[in-house]
Design a protein around this nucleic acid. Structure first.
Lengths: 145, 145
DNA sequence: TTAAACCCTAAAGTTGACTTTAGGTAAAGG
DNA sequence: CCTTTACCTAAAGTCAACTTTAGGGTTTAA
């Protein structure tokens, strides 16, 4: 029920040096070894899922280590852990909103250049009156005025 | 109708050194100067919107410069520009999907620790049978099995 | 007339998250 | 036996996108 670092690497698509680096940074508290060789268990595999998630939410390695340390401390750190997740969720909501706005602008630009190709010039696209634009474009028209 | 670098900085929340850096990297082709001093016009302000957008979509500074160069070249580069935006949109869709999965896991973890606090232990939370979990949690239950 | 508040450049420094390098140990297969 | 393969460490290197530093010019306001 334990895996070597190479096996974990294949399973997770994290490079072997990255896994060693995570270990060095304290992201696998209590990781077992047998004659110097790391033995990864289900606990570490689940840990990696959480690490990836927290990383994508914008948390730094030291802050992830902090969380991992909390997980070794039992019920006295439930609140800290919950607060961390609540905070990171708020961060992710922000990121999602931001990305949606980016998506809208990109969508507009795709349409804009498609029309420019059809009409032969950017000026022709800009000359289209607002109420003649596709609804999709109208609804998410960029540039504050 | 032109702004100094400091005024643009205030308007965009990009630092003055960042704006100079962008200029150095060629992100403002055709930026005017008066006795050595940069004069930002509406064209550059609109450019900054696009730069920010492309950056958030994952494009590097050199690739953004490439795009900015295309914009100076007229209709012969419409296709390249459209393709770029189509590609970046695909990237952003990927990012959005990824972030939504992150959001789901965070949502689960928030619930998990809230329950752990109520019930007094993680074991008690893990012992809840699947069909007794809230629907929200059931639908987005983490960990592939 | 001097100090504050702008503007400018070139070049070096910073940051976080890895990656690479150099050097070494241990088991397995031919 | 010897080569391959997988493991280990410590330390140095990389990368992108800025930021900071050092040095200098010009205009404005007291």
């Amino acid at each position: 029920m334990t895996l070597t670092i190479g096996e974990v690497s294949k399973k997770t698509n994290l490079s072997v040096p990255t896994l060693r680096y995570y270990d060095r940074e304290g992201l696998f508290p209590g990781l077992q070894r047998e004659s110097g060789i790391r033995k990864f268990s289900d606990k570490e595999l689940a840990g990696i899922q959480v690490i990836e998630c927290l990383k994508k939410s914008g948390l730094s390695i030291p802050d992830i280590k902090q969380f991992m340390d909390w997980t070794t401390m039992g019920s006295e750190t439930f609140e800290e852990r919950k607060d961390l997740f609540v905070n990171q969720r708020a961060q992710v909501e922000k990121q999602l909103n931001d990305l949606k706005r980016v998506d809208n602008l990109l969508r507009y630009k795709c349409w804009y250049y498609e029309m420019a190709m059809k009409l032969g010039s950017e000026e022709a696209v800009k000359a289209i009156p607002f109420d003649k634009l596709p609804k999709q474009i109208q609804e998410n028209f960029p540039y504050e005025h």
